[in-house]
Amino acid sequence: MTMKVSYYPGCSLKGTAREYGESVEAVFRHLGMELDELADWNCCGASSAHAVSDELAVGLGLRNLEIADRTGFDLVVPCAACFQRLKVAEKAVKSGKVKPQNGYRGAFRIRHLADFLGEDISPKLVKERVKKPLEGLKVVCYYGCLTSRPPEITDAARPEDPETMDNLMTLLGADVENWSYKTDCCGGNLILTRPKVAKKMVQKLFDKALEAGADAIVVACPMCFSNLDMKQAELTRETGREYHLPILYLSELLGLAFGDRDTGKWLRGHEVDPRPLLKEKGLL
């Protein structure tokens, strides 16, 4: 029997982060698991809802949990912000702050994609699917904020030093570099309202990733991705320091290692084109 999980893609994965959505779906196909997209899911409210009203933020999250409850499968969420908003709604139900509709059991777990792939399925299964090990590719893994913080909400075991993506990348054969900025904020939330502040925050990440010797940064959040991928040309112009560091979704590298034919199509959508680097390493 194929393993089934509920799936909450969130708004970005259907638009600006379509390569993330497409590669996540491909990875699950390779792993022989079925993604059951929540029927008629709504936006989680992201950072705007909780800035305006706690009730609104929890209400928007809760409607999605009620949909997931109908099947009761564990719920996989690839976006860090969506993940954390759904966890906030879950905790509000558990603490009795809000009442879901009658008959709600809430017996499923909400899992960020990186945690699901890195902790809930067997590493053997992932390893068996690898057709093209990512040998010679030096990466740092960037988890950002909301996959793990705050641990009271996310239930993260290692909120200051998560390692699920590092372990997955090691399984794929990549050369995973150590760095101290895995969970430092990239400022993605401020990219529209305070671009100067956000750019300073993201520049620090590039400097530290380069210092660690990385060829690329692996991410698991569409907000982090946009901020990291789209600001490099501007930073190069403004600072005089050359920034050209490919940003790759966790699922794109899994798809690449699994030999998925669509990999090139996903990578075409990036602002910093990762294809020359991957070709140079003989991976594409």
Binding site: H50, A51, D54, L146, P159
Partner: peptide, 23 residues
């Protein structure tokens, strides 16, 4: 200016959810 990154909340030794106070 707060980016809602929740680092303060995670590290507060007195368990204050500072990021939520910002909200």
């Amino acid at each position: 200016v707060c980016a809602s990154c929740e680092t303060c909340t995670t590290r507060c030794p007195n368990g204050i959810d500072i990021a939520h106070v910002m909200d």
